[in-house]
Amino acid sequence: MPRINGNEIRPGNVLEHNGGLWVAVKVDHVKPGKGGAFAQVELRNLRNGSKLNERFRSADKVERVRLEQRDQQFLYENDGMLVFMDADTFEQIELPAEILGERRPFLKDGMTIEVEFYENEALNASLPQKVTCTVEETEPVVKGQTAANSFKPAVLDNGVRIMVPPFIAQGEEIVVNTETMEYAERA
Rank of each mutant, 00 (worst) to 15 (best):
P2Q: 01
N5D: 10
N5A: 10
G6A: 05
R10S: 12
N13C: 10
E16F: 04
H17D: 08
N18M: 01
G19W: 06
G19F: 05
A24Y: 01
V25M: 14
V30E: 03
K31A: 13
K34C: 05
K34M: 13
G35C: 04
Q40T: 09
Q40H: 14
V41M: 07
E42R: 09
E42S: 05
E42Y: 12
L43E: 05
R44C: 04
R47D: 03
N48L: 06
N48E: 09
G49V: 13
K51E: 11
K51F: 11
K51L: 06
N53R: 13
E54R: 15
E54H: 12
E54F: 11
R55D: 12
F56H: 08
F56C: 04
R57F: 11
R57I: 04
R57H: 01
S58K: 08
K61Q: 13
V62K: 14
E63M: 10
E63S: 14
R64E: 08
Q69P: 08
D71M: 07
Q72Y: 14
F74W: 10
L75E: 11
Y76D: 13
Y76N: 08
Y76V: 05
Y76Q: 01
N78G: 07
M81F: 13
M81H: 15
M81Y: 11
F84K: 10
F84G: 13
T89W: 02
F90K: 00
I93Y: 10
E94F: 00
F106G: 06
L107N: 14
K108E: 09
K108R: 12
K108P: 03
G110E: 01
M111P: 00
I113D: 06
E116Y: 11
N120Y: 01
E121I: 08
E121D: 05
L123D: 13
N124P: 05
K130E: 02
V131L: 02
T132R: 01
C133P: 01
V135H: 04
E136S: 09
E136L: 11
E137D: 01
E137K: 08
E137Q: 04
E139S: 14
E139N: 12
P140W: 11
P140Y: 12
V141S: 07
V142L: 04
K143Y: 14
Q145K: 15
A148I: 15
S150I: 15
F151N: 15
K152L: 04
K152Y: 06
L156N: 09
G159K: 06
R161M: 07
M163K: 01
M163C: 03
V164G: 10
P165Y: 05
P166L: 07
P166V: 09
F167V: 13
G171Y: 06
E173L: 07
I174D: 06
V175N: 00
N177W: 00
T178A: 07
E179C: 03
M181C: 00
Y183K: 11
A187H: 14
